[in-house]
Amino acid sequence: MKFNYLHKLLLVPFSFLLCSCGDEPIPKPNCQLSLEYPSASYDKLASKCNFEFDVNTLSEVSFKENCALEVNYSKMKATLYLTYKPVDNNIEKLLRDAQKLTYEHVIKADDIIEQPFVNSDTKVYGMFYEVGGNAATNIQFYVTDSTKNFITGSLYFYSKPNFDSILPAANYIKADVRKIMETMKWK
């Protein structure tokens, strides 16, 4: 049997089908950085100030003037700034200033979630703010006994705010801030 022109025409497409069988190339998704941090362990912060709380052992605490503190997270390139102010018939002003500081970020924030905090046993009352989006700070809070002591806190990263990039670190530090609020005791 002779190969005629029709057989040759059919042989060419079938040979391409046989050669092209195999795994289809699949585009790979953009890779995302997987940031994992060790489990947190806490120690009581020793200070001469009117308060004490538990602080993450991976952080470095430095004391400033008037019982202000900086809790540095060098691996995450972040600092939690704590400011202490005595209450002297000015609780309304302190509360208003703390709320104003948080809501100044509303321009860049996608949302601001308020979570009240109350511990009647230790007389610690406050508010935890989670600022979503590309705001300069992602976490702010205040705690007070409403008669003598008032502390505000703000978390800042050493980079341009990009919420998706800093989210794992922000979540890790958010747990530390909650621990600070939960373990706060007035002297």
Rank of each mutant, 00 (worst) to 15 (best):
Y156S: 14
A136N: 11
V118W: 01
K174F: 12
I113H: 01
D97S: 09
Y73Q: 08
P86Y: 11
T83G: 08
K123A: 10
V124R: 05
A98D: 10
L101G: 05
P116A: 08
G133P: 11
P38W: 04
L9K: 09
S120D: 07
Y142H: 05
N138Y: 04
D164R: 13
I112H: 05
L58Y: 13
S159R: 09
D23K: 01
T57E: 13
K100R: 09
D110K: 09
M1E: 11
T102S: 04
I113S: 02
T102V: 15
S41W: 03
G133M: 10
K75G: 12
F51N: 11
S15T: 10
K174H: 14
N90K: 09
S165K: 15
V87N: 04
R178E: 13
L9R: 11
F163M: 11
F51K: 13
A78T: 09
P38V: 04
K160N: 10
L10R: 00
Q115P: 00
K148N: 15
N134K: 02
I166V: 15
K108G: 01
F16P: 00
V87Q: 05
P29V: 02
E65Y: 14
Y37C: 01
T79G: 06
Q99D: 09
K64D: 11
M181L: 04
A46W: 07
A170W: 03
L69A: 08
K48F: 04
K28Q: 12
S20Y: 03
E182G: 08
N72L: 07
V124M: 04
I180H: 03
N119S: 03
P27K: 06
Y129M: 03
K93F: 05
V71F: 07
R96Q: 12
S39H: 04
N30R: 02
